[in-house]
Design a protein around this nucleic acid. Structure first.
Ligand code: FES
Ligand code: FES
Lengths: 145, 145
DNA sequence: TTTAAATAGGATAAAATTGTCCTTTATTAA
DNA sequence: TTAATAAAGGACAATTTTATCCTATTTAAA
């Protein structure tokens, strides 16, 4: 709805990797896909994007897998993940589909839409991977159901 | 981003029809598509959905076209249009793609997501077609660019 | 040094969304 | 009554998104 499937998988995967990294565990694509209930090969593609964007870290070979350093869990927020996967249309796009959102020649929904979008942006920017992972750790939230 | 292309066209079309109906003019699909800059045949499909959902009124034959009664411009809000075209996933869906949004077994983003979504729902429900059409009429907003 | 395990990446396939074309139906006006 | 006009609807095509499969590359451990 708000995010593409790829983006949803990407966020869930990143949170799971963070959670495991808090325990010092490196995780494979297969494990991740199993734990977040996503298609394996498609998830692998998305993890490549996250890796290229320095959101998670990948290590090849035996004992390899994905991980994220403790300090990066603070640095990485949802806005970065969404941008890496869905691009910044969520920020610059017009709610009614005009070429771009432009206050000088606004669509009828502009003012109200900008309002909502601004809340969303603030939320995404201020939500770190660490914050999401710790909720999971405590058992208050879930990545599949 | 937030709405499908079909939904964006649908909202723009409905607003244009409302605007013209304020002047007592009935409009054809061809005119609508021209004025909101959308593909004609695809727009026709979307207008069928709006008609079936009693959001706009259609009249066949010469002098026919689409219109919306003054009182319906107050009754119809954006939420109704979005539901008619995109369904209610926007209301019941989980932001991270879990089967459904459920506070009893929430995803890590649930609380923050519900917040944003609630703002969005309130906005959509409280925005009438009449309100959007009058902004256009006054020349403050635009349906294409 | 070989083997096996893991990610990277290219090629394709399937599904969903977006878009087009053509025929049918209804209705107005000549 | 006929002709012309406009929406309704069915079939199909193109594009985008989602998903799969297979090979190459890297690397750790036996
Ligand atoms: S112009 Fe449409 S949302 Fe800004
Ligand atoms: S469970 Fe994910 S948004 Fe409610």
């Amino acid at each position: 709805m708000m995010f593409s499937k790829a983006c949803e998988y990407g966020i869930r995967a990143a949170v799971y990797i963070a959670l495991q990294s808090l325990d010092g565990r490196r995780v494979s694509v297969t494990e991740i896909a199993g734990e977040i209930d996503s298609p394996i090969a498609f998830t692998a593609k998305i993890l490549q994007q996250l890796t290229r964007n320095n959101i998670v870290n990948s290590v090849k070979g035996p004992t390899g897998g994905f991980e994220i350093e403790r300090k990066d869990m603070d640095r990485v927020n949802l806005s970065m993940i969404v941008k890496a996967i869905d691009g910044d249309n969520i920020y610059v796009g017009c709610g009614l589909g005009l070429k771009e959102c432009n206050a000088d020649k606004p669509c009828p929904l502009h003012d109200k839409f900008v309002d909502i979008r601004s809340n969303l942006r603030t939320m995404l920017k201020s939500t770190s991977l660490y914050e999401l992972a710790t909720g999971l750790e405590v058992g208050l939230t879930y990545l599949k159901r």
